[in-house]
Design a protein around this nucleic acid. Structure first.
Lengths: 156, 156
DNA sequence: GAATTATAGTTACATATGCAACTAAATAAA
DNA sequence: TTTATTTAGTTGCATATGTAACTATAATTC
């Protein structure tokens, strides 16, 4: 009666699932590095990476740049401060805000992890093949851009 | 003195980060669906998806197929049972194990979500372009296979 | 400039997660 | 058999996360 094939759902072909599995696989190895060497979580590492790259800024700026939620940033900052990697100093313009920066210890950790991240990424891309890696970059950017579109306005 | 360029680390070009951002973006929309329509978490949805696709099996089988940790499977199963979507029955061969299956309610939820997942995936691929989507499949499979290789032996 | 509204950041609570320790049953070894 | 070792699954604990509520300050409106 009904010849139209009804496509069965298959988790193994569901892109959100595949993306999650791949992301987890890709992250796992590097996660071991920042966890074992500097006792950091992923959010802490990301906050550090942004401060390391862009220099001192407020928590709000980190939220805008990284898309990490302010609660997570707040806790990551508190932890990085407690381990002596981050310094808070009052903002002259806004007494609610604080300027966040990496201490010498934090900068050293960032230098260490930054270099390892570059190595890790290079090896990762090599194992995929440079052409595939380049294509992957483009598609991932497109996917991430969808998110940005949907939530239009929350970006810088 | 030193002409060799030392590549600076840039989070925005770090594949594990990009994969995570993309995975989160891709998952977000569908997450809303299973959460709002059936009050389920991602792990519960995945357990259901495997039972829906492969039929009744033990928690151990689900772990092997899905790579979800046994703790998470245990808790997801308990929750699905408590909401009447899943049935446990003793295994004849092994009194430690239980055969898990979806109830009519569970099957109905799976039918609903499975169809919506197919639609979601189709729309997602369409917005990427079918060629890019196909390439993406291949690369993601390759990345996931790395994980499998590294943890060689934990698979079926 | 007083009252309202918006913003920076923190805290509380409820839930989710990973890991290790545990229970019970099955298998292997002795 | 009796003992030792695996295995299926659960639970406890410590930590992580999301959402909403909260505090303090800034900006806006009247």
């Amino acid at each position: 009666m009904n010849d139209v094939p009804k496509p069965a759902f298959d988790l193994e072909r569901f892109l959100p699932y595949l993306l999650n599995q791949a992301a987890e696989a890709a992250s796992r190895g590097f996660q071991d590095i920042y966890r074992d060497r500097h006792a950091m979580t992923r959010t802490q590492w990301r906050v550090m990476a942004n401060l390391g790259k862009f220099g001192a800024m407020t928590a709000r700026d980190i939220c805008a740049i990284s898309h990490i939620e302010k609660t997570q940033v707040s806790r990551a900052v508190a932890h990085l401060q407690s381990t002596g990697m981050l310094l808070r100093s009052p903002s002259a313009q806004d007494r609610r805000a604080e300027i966040l920066s990496l201490t010498d210890t934090g900068l050293a950790a960032f230098a260490d992890l930054g270099q390892r991240a570059v190595d890790y990424d290079r090896a990762f891309r090599a194992s995929l093949g440079s052409k595939a890696a380049t294509e992957l970059d483009a598609v991932l950017q497109a996917i991430i851009a969808m998110r940005t579109d949907a939530a239009a306005g929350d970006d810088v």
